[in-house]
């Protein structure tokens, strides 16, 4: 599948934003985070800012962005529509949590409940995003049980890294949060590793034979239906060379998991400027890592329509 820049930006940015929002809601309600208004303001500003950038960028690639409002109407059947509805609804408890935190400097009681509701809705939005891909039977690399855990763990991981860096900047030491970061990175690493193993060792049930309803040992294109690339070939026919994929996976493992893990350990053990710098660099590294991972998520996805254009398996 063609890796569209706007979709990579959208899922990377909104994933991190929703992760941060969810953790601020939960840890805020638990009273672990500073009730300080400036902390609340910066945290929620970053979370909602990332979410908003993501949502806006997702409308850039539409053929008719001015009709985007129509996309929230079909929540009964469409995960894309559900994602839109959930994304909008999440702003309500998130905004209320913000009122409590910034104006009243409290994140417990009613405001805490808003934090937890916001966290739930944020995670449901990420689930809806993942389900858009997971429910497409046309793409084996997406329609499997590792897609959803991949999106969820990466969202929580990037959110946790952000929260930890923010705490460091405010010179606060919520050890529960810093400890959780390490756990979240390890978990996301395992999930992504298993996902990549899964797509390397399995393929779609669809074959060239089933695609044209003729049994044969070997089916090869003889005459193409058109002599220059059409929409299908440009959109679904994107194929990344094996050696590039391997290199990008390595970059992804390094920037997304190894670096943030090492840096968070450093941040966990040290304090002061050293810890703050480590935590901030960990965030930057992970964001680059998620963008590479998302690019691969698309580039390695093989749509069944490729069976009509010479692919022997998808």
């Amino acid at each position: 599948m063609h890796p569209a820049f706007s979709v990579i930006l959208f899922t990377t940015s909104s994933g991190a934003g929703y992760g941060l929002l969810a953790l601020m809601g939960i840890f805020g309600a638990a009273g672990i985070l500073p009730q300080d208004r400036w902390f609340g303001l910066s945290g929620l500003f970053i979370a909602l800012g990332l979410v908003t950038i993501g949502l806006l960028s997702s409308t850039f690639h539409l053929g008719h962005p001015e009709r985007a409002w129509r996309a929230i109407s079909q929540w009964r059947s469409s995960w894309l529509s559900r994602e839109g509805v959930l994304a909008i609804v999440t702003f309500i408890p998130a905004g209320l949590l913000g009122i409590g935190w910034v104006f009243l400097e409290t994140t417990t009681g009613f405001w805490g409940v808003m934090g937890i509701v916001g966290a739930l809705l944020a995670m449901l939005t990420v689930i809806a995003t993942a389900m858009i891909y997971r429910s497409l039977k046309t793409i084996h690399q997406w329609a499997n049980c590792w897609t959803l855990p991949g999106y969820l763990t990466l969202s929580i991981m990037t959110g946790a890294l952000l929260l930890s860096a923010l705490l460091m900047i405010f010179d606060e030491h919520a050890r529960a949060v810093h400890g959780m970061v390490i756990f979240a990175v390890v978990l996301a690493w395992i999930v992504k590793y298993v996902y990549w193993r899964f797509i390397a060792t399995s393929k779609s049930l669809a074959t060239p034979s089933s695609a044209i309803a003729v049994d044969g040992a070997e089916i090869t294109p003889l005459d193409p239906p058109h002599n220059s690339a059409n929409y299908l070939m440009k959109e679904m026919g994107f194929i990344v060379a094996r050696k590039h994929a391997d290199k990008l996976r390595f970059i992804s493992y390094a920037t997304l998991f190894a670096m943030p893990l090492a840096l968070s350990l450093m941040a966990y053990l040290s304090s002061g400027a050293m810890g703050t710098i480590s935590a901030v660099v960990a965030v930057i590294s992970a964001i680059v890592g998620v963008a590479v991972e998302r690019w691969l998520f698309f580039a390695e996805a093989k749509h069944t329509v490729n069976l009509y254009y010479g692919a022997t398996s998808v």
Binding site: L62, L80, K137, I139, E235, M236
Partner: peptide
Amino acid sequence: KCIGCKLCSWACPYGAREFDEDEG
């Protein structure tokens, strides 16, 4: 009503839907 999100063409296994670049 179509917003041109292209998701339907991803969901079709047979490549039956084609996007109109001019009309979006």
